[in-house]
Design a protein around this nucleic acid. Structure first.
Lengths: 222, 222
DNA sequence: GTCTATACCGAGATAGAC
DNA sequence: GTCTATCTCGGTATAGAC
């Protein structure tokens, strides 16, 4: 259970908690950490201010929870894509492309969370250290780490030539995701799908050129 | 008098203009576009508010100018690095690595500008359309475009095998810069130099594996 | 003509009293 | 929850100093 410092472990109705989180994500994403007021969040969630402090120790605790839960949700979504596309490989290039493409498009499926991510970036220097710490634990890197074992397994079947699965995962990420993330402002202004498709397709091709297994001992016809 | 839309072409003392820009960059970067007040910028620059409107049409104009000038300064700095490292090639891997490394570290040399970049990201949806438009013209892509001709020239000397220099430039960027940018929050929390070095070194190696010219017609010993 | 300083306006947000 | 007083802010106006 990674929730030891929980201020209110099971206190409060879960539906209220969810409403608060939803509202907090919205308001924090729109206003940023500093500017967002707990009053605004209470108003947005249709809940008394006191109820918020029933579920969360303070503003910092609320922000951290929302950020971490959002990041975990994204990681979970990525994991679903991993299972769908990279468990059983039929055509490696096709499967990798489908995975990366869906993952790139998934950014637009968590708009409130990524607004919050942009707020985090803008305010790194004003964020309480604990928040930053938790963000580094649950943020993007945690999604990457999920990819590595899948690449490892693919390599074990002889479809890739990997020395370091973690590094290869990072590389695939660099080649197919980061550009989309940066150019779309973390999904705030989505790129044309055709552009995303081109980036991902090219990126996967490059990845495969980098990690293609050495051609099997050639028995080419003379 | 036909002078309605003209902001202030050449009017005003340049030193004041510079002080205003400096202060605006600071305040916009700290507060964001919406929250930053012209009064605060006037105070920070030690200039009367009216003077700001002497030099700039309005808040939007001021923000756009500062963003564009900052972006251009970065582009110019990158250009200097290009000239230093990629004009005369002595060892391609070494030169590329040196260039990419210095470029990656350069992010920390424009801290106020990159604070403003983060503010832009956080507020894309609240930014006046014209600002966004100009940003897209002068932003990161413009720095990338500078790289392409250098790669083209290197390729023409037979040191690289490029079909599309623009795409290759984008690739080198993906492999050596984007990760640093994202993981360091646009330079706000610099990565350990050793980490940057590793990312860049590995990235350049991968880039060269992708674009190495086909081995010259082999006359291998039988 | 540019600078400073200050007062001012209208619109929108905010906060408190009720 | 609503009404109202107050504040903030972009932008303008006035006045005088250089």
């Amino acid at each position: 259970m990674p929730d030891p410092p929980a201020p209110r472990p099971g206190g409060g109705r879960p539906d209220k908690r969810q409403a608060i989180c939803r509202a907090a994500r919205l308001v924090f994403g729109r206003e940023g950490y500093t500017r967002a007021s707990v009053d605004a969040i209470a108003a947005e969630s249709g809940v008394a201010k006191r109820t918020i402090y029933n579920h969360f120790a303070d503003k910092e605790d609320l922000f951290r929870s929302v950020a971490v839960e959002g990041a975990d949700a994204v990681t979970e979504a990525v994991h679903v894509l991993l299972e769908r596309h990279l468990r059983k490989i039929v055509d490696l290039e096709e499967d990798l492309t489908a995975f990366c493409l869906e993952r790139a498009l998934a950014v637009t499926e968590f708009p409130e969370h990524f607004a919050l991510v942009r707020a985090i970036h803008a305010e790194v220097h004003r964020l309480p250290p604990h928040v930053l710490e938790k963000w580094r634990e649950h943020g993007p890197p945690s999604a990457h780490r999920r990819l590595a074992p899948y690449l490892r397994r693919i390599a074990d079947r002889g479809l890739l030539d990997l020395d370091d699965a973690e590094k290869a995962a990072a590389r695939l990420n660099s080649l197919t995701q980061n550009d989309v993330l940066l150019r779309s402002f973390h999904g705030a202004l989505p790129l044309p799908p055709a552009t995303v498709e081109e980036i991902v397709t090219d990126g996967v091709r490059a990845f495969l050129r980098l990690y293609a297994p050495a051609p099997t001992p050639r028995r080419s016809r003379p």
